[in-house]
Amino acid sequence: MSEVDVQIPTAFDPFAEANAEDSGAGSKEYVHIRIQQRNGRKSLTTVQGLKKEFSYNKILKDLKKEFCCNGTVVQDSELGQVIQLQGDQRKNVSTFLVQAGIAKKESIKIHGF
């Protein structure tokens, strides 16, 4: 791709977006933040779809410290690693991920009610 760019020096590169680093994030690599009800008024928050390069354990450690909750990294057969946190931390997690620069605001999808 880069060769083509060099050969034809046009002002507008139609593939610029597609070649960009985070192109996939716009279309399908969403970070899904879900909530799940447990017994009583307890709930779980799951964070799925973070980039593979990140160390999930380190993120989890910070999340736990920040929100004062427990959590684990779950290994799922299809979805890879998923961060699980106790309690409804959807808002917290999304703001944290955006602030830390781990995910963009557009690529975060909050599910649940």
């Binding site: 899904h32 879900r34 799940q36 017994n39 799951t46 799925q48 799922d76 998923v82």
Partner: peptide, 8 residues
């Protein structure tokens, strides 16, 4: 459906 944790 995405990831559904085991509860219960």
């Amino acid at each position: 459906a995405g990831f559904v944790a085991r509860v219960g």
